[in-house]
Amino acid sequence: MSANNKSNQEPLFSAKNTKLLKKPFNLENPITVQVLGICSALAVTVQMKPAIVMALSVTIVTGFSNLLISFLRDTIPARIRIIVQLVVVAALVIIVDQILKAYLYDVSKKLSVFVGLIITNCILMGRLEAFAMGNKPWPSFLDGIGNGIGYGAILVIVAFFRELLGSGKIYGYDVIPKVVFETGYVNNGLMILPPMALITIGVIIWLQRSRNRELVDKS
């Protein structure tokens, strides 16, 4: 790693860098392809609002932790790198948690322990180990943001279906007209229960893989 290698500087949003931002959205999605960060993805998807807040929090934490670790990557001794990474991530999560408690108290109550659990979210450790430890700060930052958004996209999709089918609302607003209920339509209470989050993600993976055949498991 040479720090004074500035002759071949590339523009901030070169093709390579935009790719870092876009790839996690589909072909390298952290949840459906890399199997990272599933724990929290499932528990916060009953409604859209907590899901969006969670997605934003994770995006911010992944982006900045990737950036910071990438700055520090040459000075961290390999033996204690996991603890250093955890401390950086935990500090960022504490900041996010305090901001949520101050400005979005009701959502922060709903997310309960899952904000704290961003620390052990595998996306963070996975991206820090796989990308930030070996790349320059700016690409690492983009990689973090991209993975956060990829994670958030799945969260929002799952939350959309669970809230729509489970309680007939989108982002807290009623969208199914009364007439439909009068003809005998009932909200599907099962969608609110935790197991349906798993099955919804299973179906999303199924759809994604049947569109992108290269993702199908060989075995």
């Binding site: 459906t32 199997v35 229960l193 935790p194 197991p195 349906m196 989050a197 798993l198 099955i199 993600i201 299973g202 179906v203 993976i205 199924w206 759809l207 893989r209 049947s210 055949r213 993702l215 199908v216 498991d217 075995s219």
Partner: peptide, 19 residues
């Protein structure tokens, strides 16, 4: 079905076990 193999079926299985 091939697209469901591996991760997909694991999720659905876990969902059914959770139910």
């Amino acid at each position: 079905p091939p697209p469901l193999r591996g991760l997909g079926i694991s999720f659905i299985l876990t969902g059914l076990m959770a139910i």
